[in-house]
Design a protein around this nucleic acid. Structure first.
Lengths: 150, 150
DNA sequence: CAACGTATGTCAGAATGCTGACATGAATCA
DNA sequence: TGATTCATGTCAGCATTCTGACATACGTTG
C-alpha cells in the first residue's frame, strides 16, 4: 500500500541489511535442493580453504557462536563429512578436516553459491566491485574500532 | 591461529555478510541498554516513518516473516507502544500506529542507532557513500531479478 | 456471477541460534 | 613456582525465528 520511501531508503545501514537479507535468501534457495543450510555450507567452505580450523575459529568465520557451530560440527562429524581427532594435539582446540565425502558434498554447493555471487555482481564493472570491496572493509573496520577499540 | 586469507577474503558475498554481522552486533550493543532488539527497533522506526503499515508490510520491511512480526506486534501492543484497530477498515490488514509512549521509546533508540551509522561511515567521503549506495542497490536488484524474475 | 489466485492475520509445532555455566589447557606475570 | 587471565569444548535451558496450516477478504477473470 504505502510504497513511498522516506528516510529508511536513504540509510546505508538499512540498505546493507536488505542486501544481506536478499543474498541470504538467494543462497538458501540454491542450497535447499542440496539439503544444506547457509551455515552448513559456510562451515564446509571454511574447512576447504583453511583445513584444521577449530570449532571456535569456524564459529567466528561463519558469524555464529561457538555453541551453535559445535552442534553443527557434531552432526557433520556423525554423518561423515568432517573428522576431528579424539584428543587435542595442543591445548583444547580440535582441528577439523573435510573427509572425501565432505569435499564431494561441498563441490556441488560451491557451484551453486558461485552462481548466486555471479548473479549478484551482474552489471557491475570490475572497478565498481573493487570499490564495493574497499567500502565494505572500511565500514567493518570503523565499526570494529569503535567497539572494543583502543 | 590460521589468520591468512585465502579466497573467502576476496568474496564480496562473504564481506557483505561480515559487514552485516558487525553492524547488527553494534546495533544490538547500543540497543540492549534500552531493552530493545534490532527487530524491535526496526518495527518502531518503520511505523514512525510510515504510519499505518500492516503486520505483513512491517515484516517485509524488517526482513522477517509475518509470523515473527506478529508476535512482536502483539507484545508491543500489549505493552502500549503500538495500537491497532480491533477491526480492519478494509480487507484484513490492520494498520498499526505508534502511541506517544512508542514515540518516546523510539526517540532514544534512534539517537543510539544514528551514532552507530555515523561511526560506520566515518572515514568515507560523500562520494564514496553515494557509490556504496548505488552498488548495494545494484546487488539487490540483480539478486531479486534472478529470483522470481521475468 | 462464480471460481480462482493472491494477500492477510493468526495459531501451533519445529528448528535454529543464543545465553549461561562449567571444566580444562595454555600463556602471562608477579 | 603459583596465581591469574584467557581461549576452548561442551552441556543445558531459553529465545527467537521459521515452516506449515487454516480461515478470511479482496481483485481478477472466465
Amino acid at each position: 500500500m504505502n510504497q513511498d520511501g522516506v528516510d529508511l531508503e536513504t540509510s546505508l545501514g538499512y540498505l546493507l541489511k536488505e542486501a544481506s537479507s536478499v543474498l541470504r535468501s538467494a543462497m538458501e534457495e540454491v542450497l535447499r535442493p542440496l539439503g544444506m543450510s547457509v551455515t552448513h555450507y559456510s562451515c564446509l567452505e571454511l574447512l576447504a580453504q583453511r583445513p584444521g580450523l577449530s570449532n571456535s575459529e569456524l564459529a567466528r568465520g561463519a558469524f555464529v557462536t561457538r555453541q551453535s557451530m559445535n552442534v553443527l560440527l557434531q552432526t557433520l562429524e556423525r554423518e561423515g563429512y568432517v573428522t576431528r581427532p579424539a584428543e587435542a594435539p595442543v591445548g583444547k582446540a580440535l582441528p577439523a578436516r573435510l573427509t572425501p565425502r565432505g569435499r564431494r558434498s561441498l563441490e556441488k554447493a560451491t557451484v551453486a553459491v558461485r552462481s548466486v555471487e555471479v548473479r549478484m555482481l551482474a552489471g557491475m564493472t570490475e572497478a565498481e566491485q573493487a570499490g564495493a570491496f574497499r567500502i565494505l572493509q572500511s565500514m567493518i573496520r570503523s565499526l570494529r574500532d569503535g567497539n572494543d577499540g583502543p
